[in-house]
């Protein structure tokens, strides 16, 4: 076998893997499995990105998704009833509509590239893609980059304000049970 065929084989392997694991996300009973199937789907996309020449983005996608999917699993187990899927169940609504919408969107999106003429300017595969990105980040896209920083700050503050129960404005109000011992003993140094 020669090299291009290896690329093709891997492309279809990752493509099939990504789609199948993506489908399994919504068919898994256990929430942990669902989250990790989504991770597998992202990892497959990461592989596709590498094959498309975006080595850095592909690996960064896997790096980011590892943490995000762990958080996903933790949160899902917290809030879903029957998180481990020991009682298999099927919690969907408007199922038929969803399936139709999904098929329709697939057909629309999949046919489109064959109908319209796409520009074909292949990536010259620069060796220093990451460096190029860095220059872009600090140069032309500087504003985008700094805006992202502020957005993330807003997200952090919003998250803390929404979820934290021990803010300056007092502890949980209802349904809470205070520990019987002194508060100082409970808190971290």
């Amino acid at each position: 076998m020669n090299a291009p065929s290896w690329t093709t084989v891997l492309f279809w392997f990752f493509a099939a893997g990504g789609v199948i694991t993506g489908y399994r996300v919504f068919r898994a009973d256990s929430m942990v499995r669902a989250a990790f199937f989504l991770l597998a789907s992202f990892a497959a996309t990461g592989g596709l990105l590498v094959l498309l020449g975006a080595e850095f983005l592909g690996m960064v996608l896997i790096l980011m998704m590892a943490g995000e999917m762990l958080v996903m699993a933790i949160i899902m187990v917290m809030y879903m009833m029957n998180p481990a899927g020991l009682n298999p169940m099927f919690m969907v609504h408007q199922h038929r509509t969803s399936v139709i919408a999904a098929v329709a969107s697939f057909l629309a999106l999949a046919v489109l590239p064959f109908v319209i003429t796409l520009p074909a300017r292949a990536n010259p595969r620069p060796v220093a893609a990451t460096a190029q990105l860095g220059t872009e980040l600090l140069g032309d896209s500087m504003l985008v980059f700094q805006t992202a920083g502020v957005t993330l700050l807003a997200t952090i503050v919003g998250t803390v304000a929404l979820t934290s129960r021990r803010g300056r404005y007092g502890d949980a109000e209802e349904g809470s049970k205070e520990p019987p011992l002194e508060e100082e003993a409970m808190e971290s140094p």
């Binding site: 917290m78 029957n82 020991l86 502890d171 109000e173 809470s176 049970k177």
Partner: peptide, 18 residues
């Protein structure tokens, strides 16, 4: 499942009933 029930919910001091 397997002869054992699942855990039940209880109140908690941070307001999340899990």
């Amino acid at each position: 499942p397997f002869g054992r029930p699942m855990a039940e919910m209880g109140d908690d001091r941070d307001g999340l009933r899990l």
